[in-house]
Design a protein around this nucleic acid. Structure first.
Lengths: 343, 343
DNA sequence: ATTAGCACTCGACCGTTTAGAGTGCTAACA
DNA sequence: TGTTAGCACTCTAAACGGTCGAGTGCTAAT
């Protein structure tokens, strides 16, 4: 058996209805809809029965309506993703209101974005900080703090991405450090993080005298790319709006995932192109989030993939609203950060 | 009527029982306890009736047992606070295991503390970052980033507490900025933030030539003390362990408070001495947290009150465990940060 | 191919019953 | 006078049975 156009339209109608009501959908409900074109409930029943056989619908028990399966949502979102992701102007306005552009620190911008997304969608939003690789060195600065130690700063267009205390050769005065800072800045400014590392290697070879100090700096620069990416979460409380999480234990498990950075990162991994990654139910690959869906996409700074923004909620998610919101916000965030970059 | 010793002991027994079970406590349950000394359930009933009249107990309905009122918890914690807050060695060990001292950034230390507290107590923990006033200036550094702009860093013993881009006079070269940095550092290093502000005023008068630049720095330093204090929360998911939050709406409200910085700050305000502040039920002064208790205390860096650590959970909280944990952790945190300070 | 009709299923809801935990009161007791 | 055994009473939670209604699957007619 094949899924034909009518089955498809009926399936979509069921999904739409279930997304709104969270209640199993009956044949009469669907037959009453205009869009289906006046088929009787009996016909719908036959079609539903077929759709169930095809694996698109589940029946909680014999005399209840049907609910969409993961496979159905999959079809649903594939369809959505083929379309344009135009955010209605009113929604865009709301999003802009919530997303306060006056924030100065990248952390604040990211947190603001997460909160805006969660406020507008009423789901929980997750946004990663831009990864170091997407930034460009603006300055390297050694700030003396004590005999033998200095604060090393790696400053990029987006601010300080690394500050750490390193050991420096004993005989280096503050002025020496200043000099080294200038030299490094001259050598490295404008480079991407990857280029920086390479160039550092070369320099490190050339200045054997300052070996010890340069090694410390090199190590710190190495570390920049590695460190666990920081993540901001907004609207955790939104989870509890949905009946799927009225079971406290279920809600607890999801909330716990939101508090565990690596699990969260795994959940948010998105395909590197500017496109959506949607994980539905078990596709999250984590038992804790079995009834959940995650929609995520990358945002860019310039041409570089910089981070991920996403939303987590019940599989019965309003994908049709979430996708345009993320699309809009991803672009807005990318532009805002690129602006900061050139400022 | 007065509360005599026997009534008091009975009340404490009821509270202890209720804290463990979350179920209304009946007279027979209490009469079976050794500690009360073999009184019959009838006697206990009479006493319970008195305790209810005195406002220490409530009765959900006629034929249920009694539950402690806020007034009862108040009495209970006052008693606890009078005693010593000795943390059992096993608990201390656990706490140390969870509290990873190798963290370098203050943020990580604070977050680690929040997580450790929440893991050990199974409640939600809240820890504020140390306030700027408790730190001492180590260095002021201007890092050139572009024509006319520089990155201003205020470095203290605990790391960078302020980094912001300011406008500087156009003719200032990187070397000039370096010079100014050295001058300011010499003038200010070792001072507390409050002293710093005063001294800045004086300097600002003396160097009329650099007026514009110094004004920018002064403003930034002014801001340091004002900025909204940052807060870290650990173990949000723990909330949902307790039946008092099995109502999703109730849980949502509390979770929402945990996501609103000013509400959280208000909740965490603690008396400035090294002592506990305990808010029980409505004492939190916030309708959202009506069924909650908050235990908080300040921690110190050196002699200075630096921040607050606390725990939030149901009024039926294991105060007797929470108090020693906070006490221990407050001291540990203070010591750790003081150590960093002098490092 | 569609649909009206009908028997059937099953959870939700309601009123009733029952069991049990707990109370308050009274009268007896030390 | 304080304590307690005893008992009637209260109220909830759980179990039970009946009814309702939403929904299905199937069949036969169109």
């Amino acid at each position: 058996m094949q899924i034909d156009d009518r089955k498809y339209r009926i399936l979509m109608a069921i999904i739409d209805d279930y997304i709104m009501t969270a209640m199993p959908v009956g044949s009469r409900t669907i037959s009453k809809k205009q869009a289906i074109g006046g088929l009787s409930s009996a016909t719908i029943r036959n079609e539903m029965s077929d759709l169930e056989e095809l694996g698109f619908l589940d029946q909680p028990h014999t005399s209840a309506g049907r609910i969409p399966s993961s496979k159905a949502y999959r079809l649903y979102v594939e369809q959505l993703l083929r379309g344009a992701h135009r955010l209605p102007p009113e929604e865009a306005r709301q999003l802009r209101v919530h997303f306060d552009r006056r924030a100065r620190q990248v952390e604040d911008v990211i947190l603001g974005a997460a909160q805006a997304i969660s406020d507008v969608t009423r789901y929980t939003a997750v946004v990663t900080l831009p990864k170091a690789q997407a930034m460009h060195i603006r300055r390297i600065q050694l700030v003396p703090v004590a005999e033998n130690t200095a604060l090393l700063l790696v400053v990029t267009d987006l601010g300080i991405i690394k500050d750490t205390v390193i050991q420096v050769d004993g005989q280096l005065t503050p002025d020496h450090l200043h000099e080294i800072s200038n030299m490094l800045t001259e050598q490295l400014s404008g480079l991407s993080m990857d280029q920086t590392r390479e160039r550092m290697m070369e320099i490190s070879g050339a200045f054997a005298a300052r070996r010890h100090t340069l090694k410390g700096i090199l190590d710190a620069v190495e570390e920049v790319g590695q460190g666990p990416k920081d993540i901001m979460v907004g609207g955790r409380a939104n989870l509890l709006h949905y009946p799927e999480y009225s079971d406290a234990e279920k809600a607890r498990a999801v909330l716990a995932v939101l508090e565990t950075r690596d699990k969260l990162l795994r959940l948010m991994q998105a395909a590197p192109q500017m496109a959506f990654t949607i994980r539905i139910g078990d596709e999250t690959g984590m038992p804790e989030t079995s009834g959940c869906s995650v929609v995520s996409m990358t945002y860019r700074i310039g041409d570089e993939t910089a981070g991920t923004i996403g939303v987590i909620g019940p599989t019965r998610m309003q994908y049709a609203r979430v996708i345009p919101v993320l699309d809009y916000m991803g672009k807005a965030l990318g532009e805002l950060l690129s602006d900061q970059e050139t400022r």
